[in-house]
């Protein structure tokens, strides 16, 4: 079996988990996704709860804030025996399945580069663009006290 760096895998799993279902679904119809081949379930998609933890004051003792819905599954590609796992926020079994399929395929050297290019890179760009757009809007609401000081001095 090929070995994959944990940090690398965590990176793409994070991108896949936050991907919109529509984007994943579109990719799952692509030739590339079809080339991943057939797979067997190791764990069928299962929706449950994860308890979110935080820390008192942000840095102190752990406490339970409340739960969130999470769907998880695991599958194995029949051709390469590569195992894909997905834990994704929400209740979409389909999203979880496609994320696990991509995770399995990304561990196959022959498929990885193309999936990086066709799926992960657009996801990363999309995620960062959305974050940057929100940040620019927030930044526009930043109080500029210096301007106020200058006006009163004049």
């Amino acid at each position: 079996m090929q070995t994959v760096d944990n940090a690398e895998r965590a990176r793409w799993m994070g991108l896949l988990a936050r991907a919109p279902l529509t984007v994943l679904q579109a990719w799952s119809q692509s030739d590339l996704a079809r080339r991943c081949g057939t797979y067997v379930w190791l764990r069928r998609p299962e929706t449950g709860l994860m308890m979110l933890r935080a820390r008192a004051g942000g840095t102190g003792a752990k406490f339970n804030v409340g739960e969130m819905t999470v769907t998880r599954c695991a599958l194995r590609l029949e051709e390469t025996s590569s195992v894909g796992v997905a834990y994704v926020q929400g209740r979409s079994a389909r999203k979880c399945e496609i994320a696990a399929l991509a995770d399995a395929a990304l561990q196959v050297p022959a498929l990885r580069e193309e999936i990086e290019r066709d799926l992960l890179e657009p996801l990363r760009v999309r995620h960062e663009a959305e974050a940057a757009r929100m940040q620019r809007k927030a930044q526009a609401t930043r109080v500029d006290f210096l301007t106020v000081a200058r006006q009163t001095a004049a």
Binding site: G48, L49, M51, R53, A54, K137
Partner: peptide, 23 residues
């Protein structure tokens, strides 16, 4: 509704110092 779902585990503590802030 939540009482009908299985518990899959606990998350790592949220790091609020690294939030993407809107306010």
């Amino acid at each position: 509704f939540r009482a009908t779902l299985p518990r899959l585990g606990y998350t790592e503590p949220l790091d609020t110092s690294r939030m993407r802030l809107w306010r």
